[in-house]
Design a protein around this nucleic acid. Structure first.
Length: 489
DNA sequence: ATGTCC
C-alpha cells in the first residue's frame, strides 16, 4: 500500500481497495468494516461533513452484515448518512427508522412520451403554467384527491391497486413500478391516527424542498441496446417526478423513533448515536414499524401515481391529443428511502436481510426474480435526478451491484451546502431568469426561497456521481436527460 | 424531508 492509498481524516482512516472503493477497517466496537464508493473528487466532498463519522456509527448496529456502505453522492443525514446502505439480519439484527429516513419511500418515477423536443418547443411557458396550476405543491395540505381516513387506510394497504380501481392508473402502471406499487407487508393499523390525518389531504401532492416534477429531453444515449429496451431515444420528451410520502411518512418516522427510544433504551445505550435508535429484529416494535413503513411506502407510490396520471391530463390539454396517443407510459418507479426484506448471498450463504437504503436506489441486475418481466433480462431501470440546471440520468442495474452494494447505487447529486447557506448565496428570481435565458429551462415554484435553496450550484456534479456508479458496474449509464420545464414547492 | 418545537 502506498501513501496515496491511505487517507486519514481526523481519527478516521480509509484504505483504497481499488479504484473508487475505500475501506474503513473494523476497530473498537464496529461490528463490520465500512466502505465508501467514491472518486477522489467526491471523497473530498464527502469528508467535509459528518458523513464518515455517521457511516462508522452505522457499523455498530446489531446484525450489520458485510459492511456499511456510502454511495458516491453521500452526505450527512439524521443518524445514518444520506447515500447510505446497511443490511442487517432479519433474525439477529435490527431495523432502524433513522436508517430509512423521515421521508419514507421518497423516490423517483419517469414517464416516457413520444413527443420530441422540437414538437414541444414554443409551448414551454404554457406547459409549465398548466402543470403548476394542476399539480399541488408546497408545504401543507391540498392534494389531487381529498380523502378521508378510510380512504387512506385503503391506500396504505393496497398501494397503486387502489389508484387503478379509482381511475387514476392503468394496469401497465403497476407492472412498471418497483414491487408493482404494492408492499403486502403493509399494516395500516400500525400507522397512527395522527399520521393518517396528516396524509388524508396530501394524496397527489409534490411537497417542498428538493421535490419536483420536471419535463426533460433525452440528450445522450450511452447504451443503445438498453435504451431501446427502455423505449428511450435522443430528443425524446420524458417526465420525471420526485416526491415521497409527505406528512404521513414523516409522522410514521417520528412516532416510531419516539417509541423505540423509550422501549429499547438498552439497545440505544449500546449505540454511538441516539439518532440510530433501532428495534431488535423479532421484537413487537420491529414488526410494527416494518408494517407501518410498508404502509407509508404504499402511500408514496399512490402519491407519485396520482401526480403522473394528472400530468397525462395536462399534456392532453396542452397538446390536444390523448395521452395514449402520446404514449405516456411509465418507464419505472424506484424508491430511495426504504428498508426491505431481501435475500442476499453473504459469503456463500443465502440470508434474509433488512436492506436499509437511505438516499440509495435499488439497482438489481438482469436475472433477479423481483424484477418485472419487462426488465428481467436487461436489468432494472434506475432513475438518478440531478439539479434543475444539470439534468438527470437513467441507469441500468449493474452486474456487480449484488456483490458490492446489496444491489444498490446512488440516488442523486447530493447537496454541497445547507439550505441556509444557499439562501445567502442565491436569489430565487435571478436563478429562475438565468435558467430561462441561458439554458431555456422554465421553472415555476411556490416560493422564490425554494428556487434559491435548490439552485444548480448547491449540488454536486451528477455526471461525476454517475461516472463512479458506471465504472464500478453497480449502475450502468443508459441515457442522460436535460431539463425543459420544472415545477416545485 | 417536515403543519421547519408539544
Amino acid at each position: 500500500m502506498t501513501k496515496d492509498d491511505v487517507k486519514e481524516f481526523g481519527d478516521i482512516r480509509l484504505e483504497r481497495v481499488r479504484e473508487h472503493v475505500w475501506e474503513m477497517p473494523r476497530e473498537g466496537d464496529m461490528r463490520v468494516p465500512a466502505r465508501v464508493l467514491a472518486s477522489e473528487e467526491l471523497l473530498e466532498q464527502i469528508r467535509q461533513d459528518k458523513t464518515l463519522e455517521q457511516l462508522r456509527n452505522a457499523t455498530h448496529l446489531p446484525g450489520m452484515t458485510k459492511y456499511a456502505i456510502c454511495m458516491p453522492d453521500g452526505h450527512q443525514g439524521y443518524g445514518f448518512p444520506v447515500g447510505g446502505v446497511g443490511a442487517t439480519d432479519t433474525e439477529e439484527g435490527c431495523i432502524s427508522p433513522g436508517s430509512v429516513g423521515y421521508d419514507i419511500n421518497c423516490g423517483v418515477r419517469m414517464m416516457r412520451t413520444n413527443l420530441t423536443y422540437d414538437e414541444l418547443k414554443g409551448n414551454e411557458e404554457e406547459l409549465v403554467e398548466a402543470l403548476f396550476a394542476n399539480i399541488p405543491s408546497g408545504l401543507g395540505g391540498g392534494g389531487i384527491v381529498e380523502s378521508d381516513v378510510d380512504t387512506v387506510d385503503q391506500v396504505l394497504s393496497r398501494g397503486v391497486d387502489w389508484a387503478l380501481e379509482h381511475g387514476h392508473a392503468v394496469e401497465a402502471d403497476l407492472a412498471h413500478c418497483e414491487d408493482e406499487g404494492f408492499r403486502p407487508d403493509a399494516d395500516p393499523d400500525a400507522v397512527s391516527q395522527k399520521a393518517k390525518d396528516r396524509g388524508k389531504n396530501q394524496l397527489g401532492s409534490l411537497g417542498s424542498g428538493n421535490h419536483f416534477l420536471e419535463v426533460q429531453r433525452v440528450t445522450d444515449v450511452f447504451r443503445e441496446d438498453v435504451a431501446t429496451e427502455f423505449g428511450l431515444e435522443e430528443d425524446q420528451i420524458v417526465v420525471l417526478i420526485h416526491c415521497g410520502s409527505r406528512g404521513l411518512g414523516h409522522q410514521v418516522c417520528t412516532d416510531y423513533l419516539r417509541r423505540i427510544e423509550k422501549e429499547h433504551g438498552d439497545l440505544l445505550e449500546s449505540l454511538p448515536d441516539k439518532e440510530l435508535a433501532a428495534a431488535p429484529a423479532g421484537s413487537d416494535l420491529a414488526e410494527e414499524y416494518y408494517g407501518a413503513m410498508c404502509a407509508a411506502i404504499n402511500f408514496a407510490w399512490v402519491n407519485r401515481q396520482l401526480i403522473m396520471h394528472r400530468t397525462r391530463r395536462v399534456f392532453e390539454r396542452v397538446f390536444g391529443r390523448d395521452w395514449e396517443e402520446m404514449e405516456m407510459d411509465l418507464l419505472y418507479d424506484v424508491a430511495h428511502n426504504i428498508a426491505k426484506k431481501e435475500v442476499h448471498d453473504v459469503g456463500g450463504e443465502e440470508r434474509e436481510l433488512f436492506v436499509h437504503r437511505k438516499g440509495a436506489t435499488r439497482a438489481f441486475p438482469a436475472g433477479r426474480p423481483e424484477l418485472p418481466s419487462a426488465y428481467r433480462d436487461v436489468g432494472q431501470p434506475i432513475i438518478i435526478p440531478g439539479s434543475m440546471g444539470a439534468g438527470s440520468y437513467v441507469l441500468r442495474g449493474g452486474e456487480h451491484s449484488l456483490d458490492l452494494t446489496f444491489g444498490s447505487t446512488a440516488h442523486g447529486a447530493g447537496r454541497t451546502m445547507s439550505r441556509t447557506q444557499a439562501k445567502n448565496d442565491y436569489w430565487g428570481e435571478t436563478v429562475q431568469e438565468e435558467l430561462r435565458d441561458q439554458q431555456k429551462i422554465y421553472v415555476k415554484a411556490q416560493s422564490g426561497a425554494t428556487i434559491a435553496e435548490e439552485a444548480p450550484g448547491v449540488y454536486k456534479d451528477v455526471d461525476e456521481v454517475v461516472r463512479v456508479s458506471d465504472e464500478l458496474g453497480i449502475g450502468d449509464k443508459v441515457v442522460r436527460t436535460f431539463p425543459v420545464c420544472n415545477i416545485k414547492g
